[in-house]
Structures are given as C-alpha cells and as structure tokens.
Design a protein around this nucleic acid. Sequence first.
DNA 1: TATGAATGAGGTTTCATTCAT
DNA 2: TATGAATGAAACCTCATTCAT
Lengths: 204, 204, 204, 204
Amino acid sequence: MSIPSSTEPTANRFERRKERTRNGILRAAELVMAHKGVHATKVSDIAHRADIGVGTFYLHFETKEALFDAMVADTVRRLKDEIDEARRSVSGVIEQIRASTAALCRFASANREVFRVVFGHSGTYLRVVREAQELFAADIEVVLAEGMSQGLFTNVTPRLAAQAIIGMSTQLLAWCTEHADVPLAELEHTLNTLTLDGMCRAPA
Amino acid sequence: MSIPSSTEPTANRFERRKERTRNGILRAAELVMAHKGVHATKVSDIAHRADIGVGTFYLHFETKEALFDAMVADTVRRLKDEIDEARRSVSGVIEQIRASTAALCRFASANREVFRVVFGHSGTYLRVVREAQELFAADIEVVLAEGMSQGLFTNVTPRLAAQAIIGMSTQLLAWCTEHADVPLAELEHTLNTLTLDGMCRAPA
Amino acid sequence: MSIPSSTEPTANRFERRKERTRNGILRAAELVMAHKGVHATKVSDIAHRADIGVGTFYLHFETKEALFDAMVADTVRRLKDEIDEARRSVSGVIEQIRASTAALCRFASANREVFRVVFGHSGTYLRVVREAQELFAADIEVVLAEGMSQGLFTNVTPRLAAQAIIGMSTQLLAWCTEHADVPLAELEHTLNTLTLDGMCRAPA
Amino acid sequence: MSIPSSTEPTANRFERRKERTRNGILRAAELVMAHKGVHATKVSDIAHRADIGVGTFYLHFETKEALFDAMVADTVRRLKDEIDEARRSVSGVIEQIRASTAALCRFASANREVFRVVFGHSGTYLRVVREAQELFAADIEVVLAEGMSQGLFTNVTPRLAAQAIIGMSTQLLAWCTEHADVPLAELEHTLNTLTLDGMCRAPA
DNA sequence: TATGAATGAGGTTTCATTCAT
DNA sequence: TATGAATGAAACCTCATTCAT
C-alpha cells in the first residue's frame, strides 16, 4: 500500500505542476486578451502575466493559435454543458429557449473575461469562433424548427432566425461585459422579449 | 481669362484623376479584404489589386489604418444616408423600423464586399467599426424609446434592445453575404419578425 | 524610336539595381560563410556585410536556405560549365580526366571563398551539396566505365571509384583553400597521379 | 578491512552503473545523429533515445559539444588503435598501407553509425573532426615520405597526397555506409587500387 | 543520482512605411 | 505624381542549459 501511495503522488506531482502552469497560462491569456484584444496580445505578454518564461509557454501550447483554440474549445464546451443541462431540466420549446437564455446570461456574467475574448468583438473574426457560433446556431435551429412544427412559432426560416438570435445574444452580452453592469435579470428579459415576443405590444 | 478657364479644367483633370485612383484603392481594398480578411490583407496586396505601386498608396492614404477608417466612414455615411432617407419617407415608429430594416437589407445586398468587411466578422474587432455600430445603436435607441413612450412597444431597456437589434442585424446580414443567396424579402421578413413580433405566435 | 529607347532603360534600371543588390548579397554570403562557416552565419551577418537591411535580404531570397541553394546551384553550374568546356577540347578518356582535373583546380583557385563554402567542410553536410557531388560523381562514373571498356583502366567498380575521386578532389582542394598557398600545378599533379597512376612506382 | 572491501565493490557498482549510463548516452547519440545528422539532433532526442531524463545527460557530459568531442575522441582512438595494431603486424610501407586500408574498412563496416557521424558528411564541418582527420593525415604523410625515400613511391608532396587519401577514404566509406551494401573486399580493393596503382593499366 | 519543467537568449521572418529615382 | 526597392522594429519560436524536487 505504501508503495502505490508513494509512487502515485510522485507521478502526479509533475502532472499537477504542469497542469497548474497550463491553467495559469490560460487564465493569464484570458485576462490579457480581454484587455488588449486577441490580436494585439503577444505571447510574451501572456508569459509575463503568467509570470513564466516565454519558452514555458511553448512547452504547453504548440503555437499562440493553439492556445486560442484550446481556450475557445474549453469555453464552448463549458457553455454548451451548462446550456444543455439547463434545457434538460425543462420541457417545451419555449421553456427551453428561456432556460438557454438564462444559462447563457449566467455564463457570460460568471466568465466575463473569457466570454469577451471568445464571443466579443475581439475574437469573432477567427475561424474557430465562427465554428463555435455555428455549433450553437445549429442547436437553436433545431429548437426553432420544432416549435414551428408544433405551431407554436411563427414561420421564418429557422437557419436565418438562428443566426439572428446568435448575433443578438453575443452582441448584447459582449457589449454588457464591456460596458455597464447590467443586472442579469434585465439581460435575460431583453433577450427573451426580443426572441419570443418582439418589441410590439400587439402583433404588428 | 483664357488662362483661368484652361487651368481650371486642368486642375480638375488632376483632381478627377487623383479621385479615380483613390476610389480604385478603396475598391481594391474592399475586394481583397472581403476575401482575405482585414487583418491578413497587406498594403502590397491592395496596391497590387489596384494596379498601382505601394508608394502610390501612401500618396492617397496616410496609413493602412487611415484607409480602413475612410472605408468605414464612407460606408457608414452611405448606409446612414439610405436609412435616414428611407425613414423620412414614412411615419410611425413601427413603419420607420420596417423602412430601416428594408434599407439595411438593400444596402447589404448591394454592397456585399464592403458590408462583409465593415460589419462582418473580419472587421468588428476594430475600434472604428464598434464606433460605427454605436452610431446606429443610438438611432435605434431613440426610436425604441419613442415607441415605448407612445405605448406601442414593450418595456425593455432601449439601450440593451438596440444593441441586440444591431447584433442580430449585422450577424444575419454578414452571414448571408458570406453564405447562401437568400432573397432580400426573406431577410427583411426575418429581421422584422424577430424585432417586432418575436418567434411566438401568441404572446408567450 | 525614342520611346522604346527611353522606356527600356527605365524598366531596366530597377532590374539592374535589384540584380546588383542580389549579387552583393551572394558575394557577402560567400565571404562571411567562408569565414564563419555556413551554419554559424546569421542572416543579419550577411545583411551587415552586404550593407543592407535585414528585410532587404528577404526581398531577394525566400529564406536563408534558399540563398544557400542558389549559391550552390550557381557554383555547380559554373564549375560544370568549365569542366565540360575543358573536356570538349580534348579527346580520350585519360586526357579528359586530366582536363577535368585542371579545370577543377583552376576553378577552386579562382573562386576560393565560394569553393570553400560549397565543397569545403562547412557545407558538405547539406543536402544540396551532396546532390551536387552526386552530379559530378555521375559524370566521372561514365568516364571511368568508358575507360574500362576500352581496356585503358583497371577494373574497379566505377561507382565506387567515382566517389573516391570526388572525395579526394574536394578534400584536397578544400584543404588547400583553407591552408597553404599550393601552386596550381602541384595540386593538379597530385590529383592526376593518384587518380591515374597511384603512389607506386611499379605496379604493386 | 571489511569496510574497504565492502565499499570498494559498492563504489565500483556505482562506477559501473555510471559508466553504463554514459555508454548508453554515447550509443544513443550515435544512433540518433547517424539518422538525423549532428546538427539536427537535440539533447532531448538523445536523452529520449537513451531512456533517461535531459537532466541526467548533463550529469555525464558538460555540454552537447563535450559529448560530441568525447564521441569523436573515442572513435578516433579506437580506429587509431586498430590501424596501428594492423600496421604493426606487417612490414614494408606498401604492406602497411594495405593493412591500414583493411583495418579502416573493417572499422567502418563494424561501426557504421558512428563512422557516418564522425567521418561522414554530417560531422565534417566540426572542428574536432577536422582535427581527427589531421591526425590520420599526419600518419599517412609519414608513410608516404618513407616510401618515397625508399624509392618505392612516386614523388608527390606527401602532405597533399595524404589529404587526398584521407578524402578518398572517408568519402568512399561514408558513402557506402549511407548507401549500398558493398562487400568489404570491394571497398578495400578500390581504395588500394586508387592509392597504389591508380586507374591506368599502364603508367599514363 | 535522476528527473523533466522552466528558462531566455538568440535566431528567423514579416510588413508597414520611407525614399531615391 | 508614381514607383518599388530598401528599411528595421517587432513578433514568433527553438533548444541548450539550469534547477527545484
């Protein structure tokens, strides 16, 4: 027993140290990129912020782009998990949309920096981010199509509406993470209203 | 007398020629940037496409950024003119929103390349573009506030809703200019529906 | 007539200037590499020696390796031309070998630096140089095979003997360019003796 | 007394273990360098191949260059020992040359990798290797001078002929270790023929 | 002694901008 | 005015070596 318990930690000590450094780099990258923008952020900025040498950066990520890819992949996975989880807890397309919106707002609020970096204006011109948007757009499209087939939703092209909803959500949330401290409830309300009911009191 | 009359046209000829070269550069920039992205476009790419020397570029624009600024400024002015014109021809906030949407869609469709560059994913990370979005957002905010004060619109924070509408519009239109050939009417319909009526058949 | 004669020089002025710079870079590279070795030579060393900016280097050569390739290709071509020319002027395999040796020695003597760089110890570890050696080895192999079929030459495997002759020649000449001022005639004599008659007075 | 007798073997065990690791590193270096070339071989490649940590490498060799120096020194010593041994067993300069050639070929054949690394194209640009070549060249020079003074050899400058013979031998053997499986006897024959008798049937 | 993560100097390459013609 | 060769600061990335465990 003593042997496994003494060797395993040793094997893990390296692993854990490495993991800690890697996370430090990711966190530093989020902070610097949120501040200076993805493009203007140099590898040396990140290294400096993470308090490591430049070479160490390349020990953990092949290139600067690879870091960004990892960051996007990680963020997208976490956001998708939260949204999927939220949706599983309710039924009905409308409730699902509300739940998704709520999860999205919660996520953006709890992960300001990385949300700004990944979904904000500083990142959207990158391929990986557009691919991530497509992933969410595809989910939304399915929900919209379902709602239409149930007669609950107005007939618009689901693919287009999905893009519109993605655009509205990311813009609004990115804007908020960059500007005023808007209460979560207000964000959610705005998105839900526009998505579901539109601006008009009575159908226009 | 004969001298002024002969020099003025000469002066104009130069002016016109200079103007033509400048426009050639702008047009070349739009095409190359729409293709390669703002960031990946080199000054030499633009010069090559415009069929001029790199040095000539700098006779017409102080820096590469100045070109982009001019491009955005020009595009924004033209788009704003068209939207303002469209809005002047109708009355009532709802009709004004419809008219704006129509003008926006028409513009995006008629100026695909430059629209992609300025409002699409490849440019939004730049300051000037964000400022341009704010300009339009401000206009929308006014309309929304007006509509609310008239009791026509649901009560949401106008500033937030304006951002959401900007995001939805630019995303959808940029997406379309990069992807499928979607009929103008369908674009307009999608935007109007979401903005005014939301997805729900009956108020949710 | 005046138009062609006035425009052509203009077109050529750029060409000539560019060509001059390119040659300056090649010459600087030969000198620096002969002094410091291929591998230890930095692009900035070459640029400094050629009295140009680093960027200018890349205007003329894609990479540092490309410069070396060009240098080898150029040197090999010139050497081959001289050897071929020399061989054309005589007949009989033995005379051809003598003529080749003479041409080789003359070339090495007239192009000390570049010979050292390309065939000397500092370059031979590079692929391009080995390929160049193979080119000359192939020529030698043909001559040897011919000499054997005519009963003039001892029977050894031509391919092996060709390699040996290449090795002897490059080593001896490279050594001489790096060391003593050995008279050309002595070099030639040594190579011819070893190649054709061997060290022994009487057949061993 | 018991203490010395028990510590000595212990000390030896450590010594032996250290020696084994050191040899493992040398052997790994030979294999990797023969494959990737001296210059392209990283310390981490060697460590990986020797199945040790990078840090361990530096417990056995001061620097990467020190390893290479040791490798060359070791190889040169072993080769020199074998050649000297072979020469001691015969008398007469011609026989000594034959014996040396035979020993050289045997060595190259029995130590392919390290021969390629030290005498092949991948290493000759390094100072230590050139020095090693000079060592052998000096020996050859002596033999040649002796042969001439005995009237057995043609009169050529011994120093030059020695360089030529070194070049011919290393090139041919290195080429063979990199290419075809040429029988030892054929190698020896080619080298002896060229060195002693030259290509010509009858003196040219 | 053995380890492998961390280091950072040093090299390559790019491209907006200048300048001589 | 038009040109395109020249410039060099600035960014990326590598790898021999060190060091804490």
